[in-house]
């Protein structure tokens, strides 16, 4: 549903809360909280610490890792297929997504039309394939907006500290108190309709999560010994930021970005389902499902199959995010 962003965050919050309790800290506000968070992080997995040491790809290990996880392999395949569809739709179909044969409308799925045909005899599979470009574009914009703005805010908050941090984090708190979809709807009301506008609205609704994660990671890294050491030997702030803090903090944020990818696919499709996305006949996924609603009674494939495509995409990115986050690190 529409906006798992905060929900995903929420899970983490709950887990983080649990972890903090476990740590038993009745910490003070501010830095103590960050320390607690960092502590909690270590409990679960300190794998990312000096990240630079892990750059080398261990192929046999990767092979073993994947072999034990057929689901993950499948997820990667799905994502690769979707990305290919977005950039090279001609690999899948030579049919025109906008041009149909009216006399062959409402044909069910068959060898010739894998996903059937729609109300104007257009090939639904071709529409889903070409729709991947639109949906993916919107999703990438959404994630990028959240990543850049949220990550930037978190970075500044964590790195600069003091009152800047307080102000930014209070704003983030406020953003978090507005349910994501409501925030997106308010932005759509203000910005208007269209794929890009919807993408921006979705991205902004996720800014707060990125800011929080980035800040927490930056704080964690900042206090690490090797960073302290770099600073004590007189390294400039930008060099500390660029060489130590950013690369190490980035890992978590990238995991969040992967997660947010699935979340954004759902959010974008929900908004275009509500009619705020691409104008017809553009085959954006949510729009496809939405326009199939008129024919629920006589053409089930118009809603079912594009929907399954969305589900497969989101499931896959979530599975990959999970692998990136914990499994790979903890697997020995």
């Amino acid at each position: 549903m529409t906006r798992p962003t905060t929900a995903v965050g929420a899970i983490r919050a709950a887990e983080g809360a649990g972890a903090a309790e476990g740590a038993g800290a009745a910490e003070a506000a501010g830095a103590a909280e960050a320390a607690g968070a960092a502590g909690a992080a270590e409990v679960v997995g300190a794998w990312r610490e000096p990240a630079t040491a892990r750059r080398r790809v261990d192929l046999p290990r990767l092979g073993r890792f994947l072999l034990h996880r057929p689901g993950l392999v499948l997820a990667v395949i799905v994502v690769v297929l979707v990305v290919l569809a977005a950039f090279w739709p001609a690999l899948y179909t030579s049919r025109d997504p906008l041009l149909g044969v009216p006399a062959r409308r409402f044909e069910g799925p068959s060898g010739q039309h894998w996903f059937g045909t729609d109300e104007l005899g257009r090939d639904v599979f071709a529409r889903v394939v070409h729709g991947a470009a639109l949906s993916l574009k919107a999703t990438i914009i959404a994630v990028a907006v959240a990543f850049v703005i949220g990550g930037g805010l978190g970075l500044v908050a964590g790195f600069v500290g003091r009152w800047v941090e307080d102000v930014i984090m209070r704003v983030v708190d406020v953003l978090l108190s507005i349910p994501g979809l409501f925030m997106s709807l308010a932005l759509v009301t203000a910005l208007g309709y269209g794929t890009v506008k919807v993408a921006i609205a979705v991205g902004i609704a996720s800014v707060a999560s990125f800011a929080r994660v980035m800040r927490a990671e930056v704080l964690k890294v900042r206090q690490a010994t090797y960073v302290e050491a770099a600073r004590s030997i007189g390294a400039r702030w930008y060099s500390v930021l660029g060489r130590h803090v950013l690369p190490n903090a980035m890992g978590s944020v990238l995991v969040l970005a992967t997660l947010d990818f699935g979340v954004s696919v759902l959010a974008v499709s929900a908004l275009s389902f509500l009619g705020y996305g691409a104008a017809p006949p553009a085959p954006e996924w949510g729009t496809l499902i939405s326009s199939g609603r008129n024919y629920l009674a006589n053409a089930w494939w118009l809603t079912t199959l594009p929907g399954l495509t969305v589900v497969a995409t989101v499931l896959s990115t979530n599975r990959i995010a999970r692998a990136l986050d914990g499994e790979w690190a903890t697997q020995r």
Binding site: G9, E15, G16, V44, N318
Partner: peptide, 13 residues
């Protein structure tokens, strides 16, 4: 919410 920090490193969603 979103991960006061530790959350992220727990298995994601």
């Amino acid at each position: 919410t979103p991960a006061g920090g530790g959350a992220l490193t727990t298995p994601a969603v």
